[in-house]
Design a protein around this nucleic acid. Structure first.
Length: 572
DNA sequence: TTCGACTGCCAC
DNA sequence: AAACGTGGCAGTCGAA
């Protein structure tokens, strides 16, 4: 059962049950307590309803304020973006109003930016802003029902409607999970974080000033150079290194590490600490952590490959050292579950390469592959990654020859994606997420579009120097080569997360309710009452099996979960 | 003063 | 060892 929902912005709203065809009218009603009505339905409906709404970002957060958790939804904006992408129209406006306008041949309004504010500061809005971009005279509910029905038709007309429907479902489930995670937050011990900062940087300085340790290092660096140098300025550092007879092409750490001069260790230390201070220092702590929780702002589908992005807070790049501050509440524990070696396993599954799939049936895929690479696990790993990333430099060439010989179908899968990219074609993930088309500029340079006739001459072997067409083509080839893997890996993670979410919701709440608090590409972190740890781990294990079968059927590929039950995230 | 390009480092 | 994919973000520096 699908039910279309339009909030009225004052706590109530209108709902309409959708018949199986998505169009004909079933019951329609108006409620003054939307959260209550939805909760009733979730509780009493024979089958878990799927709520159809314009955008989870807009509709779900106010419902969560009423402690409402819903099971399933269809997020019209997210699904619209997926469908547009599939048509090669990546990036076009996706909101309900835009989809409605396209249906009616009207001017398509651009999407409005969603500004939930910076993490901890709650939005003090009197009215929920309407971001649907529908014209004011159009009935919201009627438009929603119409656009949803159209989306269902478009999905049904695709070559693999079942797969795409699964994609639409898990993308929507991800949106629910993202709102829930932002609401719950990652348990974060500000005192531990502060102590860590003080140990490394010295006492907290007054606003804007350099912490003591950094200031001292900066002084010693200037002394070592024999001139005043701001170590935060790459330009000044380049000049300073040249002046002391050690010219460097850049000031990257790995470049400096090869320079033998007493200033280098000082500088490396400075860079490390300066990074900590600027990215995850006291300012970050003040901005993003409050009441013992870090609340990042996830952007579902924010990455072309379908991975999530975050807006502010840098949630997807929390450095290892800072994870010390992520500590479970008393009598609670953290469960970190990540899918080890996810991408090569995805490659094995989607390509149907039996040799690679056999290796992917073991816990350590790379170790299994070592035999083909002179017994060297590390070389096997580089070979596999080079195949998926399109690496050609370094030692990659001989490893790729081995890959091609040993895993021909896997290599052909990624090579085909790369060729498609170089020709300006689109590639898709396993479930149908589609890469963006090349830019007009790219088409001009590589394909010679827009009048100039034949493509620029290139034979694929020339070096990058002076061959912008070849360079651009290979760059896009690497992108599409990686896209088919990364995007499918992201799908695995979404399906897995949806399965975990459903499994946790079905647990007996008597032992306390486990919460998903963090998601990072191929890793899920749960915050779990001690009494519920075993059942939560069971849910995770079951979700992996379910995900594997749902995506790949009876494959021999395994997706082993590394599950760590810890007090502190740094110990995972 | 504001803005964007650029550099560099963090995560997967 | 350092050209290999997706990103976010802070800082510098020159242009508007």
């Amino acid at each position: 059962m699908r039910i279309a929902v339009v909030p009225d912005g004052e706590g109530g709203g209108r709902l309409r049950e959708l018949a199986a065809d998505g169009v004909s009218e079933a019951s329609l009603w108006r409620v003054s307590d939307l959260a209550g009505a939805i909760a009733d339905y979730e509780k009493h409906a024979a089958e878990s309803p799927r709520w159809v709404w314009a955008s989870t970002d807009e509709v779900y957060p106010p419902l969560m304020e009423h402690s409402l958790r819903i099971g399933r939804c269809h997020d019209v904006a997210l699904v619209e973006a997926l469908l547009l992408g599939h048509q090669g129209r990546f990036g076009e406006a996706r909101s309900l109003g835009a989809a409605w306008a396209r249906l009616h041949g009207r001017d398509v309004p651009p999407d409005l930016a969603h500004h939930p504010g910076t993490g901890v500061v709650p939005q003090a809005t009197l009215f929920e802003p309407d971001l649907s971009t529908l014209p004011p005279d159009v009935d919201r509910l009627a438009a929603l029902v119409e656009v949803h029905a159209d989306q269902q038709r478009r999905i049904a007309a695709l070559p693999s409607p079942d797969r795409f429907a699964l994609l639409a479902a898990v993308e929507s489930a991800g949106a629910l999970a993202a709102v829930e995670m932002a609401h719950v937050g990652v348990p974060w011990r500000a005192d531990v974080h502060d102590k860590l900062l003080t140990e490394q940087l010295g006492p907290r300085p007054s606003a804007g000033a350099r912490p003591g340790v950094l200031a001292e290092l900066a002084e010693r660096i200037s002394d070592a150079f024999g001139r005043q140098v701001n170590p935060d300025s790459p330009a000044q550092l380049l000049r300073a290194f040249a002046a002391i007879g050690h010219p460097v092409p850049s000031t990257r750490s790995w470049v400096l590490r090869r320079v033998e001069h007493p200033v280098v260790p000082l500088l490396l230390r400075y860079k490390e600490l300066a990074r900590l201070h600027s990215a995850n220092g006291w300012t970050w702590l003040d901005t993003w952590v409050q009441h013992g929780r870090f609340r990042p702002d996830y952007v579902v589908g924010g990455v072309v490959s379908g991975r999530w992005a975050t807006r502010g807070g840098g949630a997807l790049q929390i450095p290892k050292v800072v994870r010390r501050a992520v500590v479970a509440d008393p009598d609670w524990t953290l469960i970190a579950a990540d899918a080890g070696q996810l991408e090569p396993r995805i490659l094995a599954a989607v390509s149907g390469d039996h040799a690679l799939a056999a290796a992917a049936g073991s816990d350590d895929l790379y170790a299994r592959l070592a035999g083909a690479f002179e017994g060297d696990r590390q070389r096997a790993k580089i070979g596999v990654l080079a195949a998926m990333y399109g690496q050609t430099g370094g030692d990659a060439a001989p490893l790729l020859r081995t890959m091609r010989r040993t895993f021909p179908r896997a290599m052909e899968y990624v090579d085909a994606a790369a060729r498609a990219g170089e020709e300006g074609l689109l590639v898709r993930s396993w479930l149908g997420r589609t890469c963006p088309p090349p830019s007009p500029m790219w088409r001009r340079i590589v394909l010679g579009d827009a009048g100039s006739g034949a493509p620029d001459g290139r034979d694929g072997r020339d070096s990058d120097e002076g061959d912008p067409a070849g360079r651009a083509a290979r760059e896009r080839g690497r992108f599409t080569r990686n896209f088919v893997i990364q995007a499918t890996a992201a799908e695995w993670a979404l399906v897995f997360m949806a399965a975990v979410r459903r499994g946790l919701a079905a647990l007996d709440p008597g032992a306390g309710v486990p919460q998903t608090v963090f998601f990072q590409h191929d890793e899920l972190v749960l915050h779990v009452p001690r009494a519920a740890v075993d059942s939560a781990v069971e849910v995770l294990r079951g979700a992996e099996v379910e995900t594997r079968h749902l995506l790949f059927g009876a494959t021999e590929v395994r997706f082993p979960l590394d599950i760590a039950v810890v007090e502190c995230y740094a110990d995972a």
